[in-house]
Amino acid sequence: MASQGTKRSYEQMETDGERQNATEIRASVGKMIDGIGRFYIQMCTELKLSDYEGRLIQNSLTIERMVLSAFDERRNKYLEEHPSAGKDPKKTGGPIYKRVDRKWMRELVLYDKEEIRRIWRQANNGDDATAGLTHMMIWHSNLNDTTYQRTRALVRTGMDPRMCSLMQGSTLPRRSGAAGAAVKGVGTMVMELIRMIKRGINDRNFWRGENGRKTRSAYERMCNILKGKFQTAAQRAMMDQVRESRNPGNAEIEDLIFLARSALILRGSVAHKSCLPACVYGPAVASGYDFEKEGYSLVGIDPFKLLQNSQVYSLIRPNENPAHKSQLVWMACNSAAFEDLRVLSFIRGTKVSPRGKLSTRGVQIASNENMDAMESSTLELRSRYWAIRTRSGGNTNQQRASAGQISVQPAFSVQRNLPFDKPTIMAAFTGNTEGRTSDMRAEIIRMMEGAKPEEMSFQGRGVFELSDERAANPIVPSFDMSNEGSYFFGDNAEEYDN
């Protein structure tokens, strides 16, 4: 993207840094990872977990959730003011799984939030270390993106479920800051804005008074975040219109849905970061690795190297396929839920299948599930090659597409044709070009129609051997075009429920 120079890199967003050079960025990201790792080690000690239990991804998720809940100030305040039966607002906890007599047992633990905050700050040299908290939120978000298709949420806001490739980060909490905003897809931002506008339509006082002023500035800020994701002048001009509207209503909703559809071809720039579970960072720190000293990046080879040398386990339900569970977590670790499966298959070195073909449910185990038949197995999170994460949407291309997802959002900077089903997408653009945004709409449609099938995206960008740390010898991959490109292809993934 041309304006790259004016933006802070995501590592800076990730670490609240002012302008830093590459070495400083690597050190501050490393410091953040160190903090998460030290916190995780301490929690495993508190909970008396064995090494194996500490490497269980379900335990990692519970521990991450506990610290996120302990620092969720708004919710904590709300819980104190609106006490609900049987919930102690000062405590947080969740299921911890232990191996007892050759069987997995679930144990519900409860801790004072104050105590968890103390352990977290102690692991982070006394700081609140917001960057580390956001990092864990993005890992949870990436896992949700890989596990669930947001059909219901899309339909509720009037969008087409086939636009799911635009929904990265749709389950990120509001408090995820600049680093969170960077990884949100165009569809996620559109959905947040539509929800806001709908509230304004239904509630006369939404934009009024002292609160209304705050609401208005939040609305304009979200519009600017979305505008910054678009790469064409016409899309940005249309966002200006939406932002400046005196009284946002149905016309703005129409414009936003139009823009979301246009992003299936004229893709937005959305950041991709490899955020790993805390149970990967903990053992690495415990083994003596100093992330701050060595430096770390979320968008280069580092996460690949770390996963190459990590042992992570997962509980497996009786009829689940461990290899499929591994694929789910591998995609989440690489922030690749909406990437082209052919690119992923090449990088991973084994075939990556669409969601609907995987015999696996989510990673988390519900409290009512029976533990008797639970097994555990090693997650295979290694890769054959590594590639640089991208934040450009890439230019655009036609490809055989599917009944489910009709476009992709690249996660890796790797040369390819970008699949999208042009006739299906263009069919949504018939007729409606009147109104105050008509010239911009016409211009956007013209650009979409001009998108050429034979153009290559990320020209000359390749993948790298894991021994090639400096990215000196790019390998331009070859793809098996007979395979499906979309992950949520004609899909039956479970729906995400809060």
Rank of each mutant, 00 (worst) to 15 (best):
R38C: 13
K273D: 09
E494L: 03
D290V: 01
S478H: 08
E484S: 03
A332K: 06
N417H: 14
A403W: 12
G228C: 06
S269V: 07
T215L: 03
D340R: 08
M222A: 01
N334M: 00
N59M: 02
R208L: 15
S60V: 07
R102P: 14
V414L: 06
R384N: 00
F230R: 10
S176F: 12
E484W: 04
L266E: 10
N370V: 15
H82Q: 07
F71G: 09
P453S: 15
L307I: 02
I194K: 13
E210I: 05
T360V: 00
M481Q: 15
D88V: 12
G282R: 05
M481P: 02
S402M: 15
G54A: 02
K113A: 10
K98H: 01
N498K: 15
G54C: 08
W330F: 03
R26I: 05
T45G: 01
S310Y: 01
M105C: 01
E495P: 09
K31L: 05
L315C: 15
N370Y: 14
R221H: 12
P173H: 05
A129C: 03
M191Y: 02
V476C: 01
E81K: 01
R8W: 15
R121D: 07
R361I: 08
V190Y: 06
D439V: 00
I201P: 09
S310R: 08
D128L: 01
L47N: 13
L256P: 13
L276C: 12
Q399M: 04
R461C: 12
A70F: 09
A332L: 05
A428G: 02
S367Y: 02
E64P: 00
A387W: 11
N144D: 09
F429L: 06
R102Y: 14
F291T: 08
R436L: 14
W330M: 06
A182C: 08
K184F: 10
G180S: 03
A27F: 05
F479I: 02
I365Q: 08
S438V: 01
V270K: 10
N125G: 02
I253R: 12
I425M: 05
E14D: 02
G249W: 08
A472E: 08
K48E: 12
T350N: 03
A323H: 01
M13V: 07
N321P: 08
N498V: 13
V329I: 00
M238R: 08
F291L: 14
S297V: 14
L79M: 04
A131F: 04
F488P: 11
L379C: 15
I253K: 10
E80Y: 02
G209R: 13
M105E: 01
E252Q: 01
G169D: 04
E454C: 08
N321K: 14
M440P: 01
E11V: 05
Q20Y: 09
W207R: 13
G485T: 07
P419R: 05
W386I: 03
L193Y: 13
N368S: 14
Y78F: 15
G349D: 08
A278Y: 06
E494Y: 14
D491M: 15
Y487G: 11
T130K: 14
G485W: 00
K214N: 08
K229L: 12
N321C: 14
I347L: 00
E320S: 08
E455P: 05
G462V: 07
L315M: 01
D480C: 00
E375G: 08
Q241F: 08
L193D: 13
N395S: 14
V299E: 13
M189P: 04
M222W: 12
W139G: 09
G185M: 10
E252P: 11
M238Q: 14
R38V: 10
N432G: 15
S383Y: 10
S482L: 07
A427G: 15
L166D: 13
F479R: 00
K273N: 03
A451K: 00
E294A: 01
K184R: 04
A451V: 12
R199N: 04
N202W: 00
G268C: 12
E292H: 01
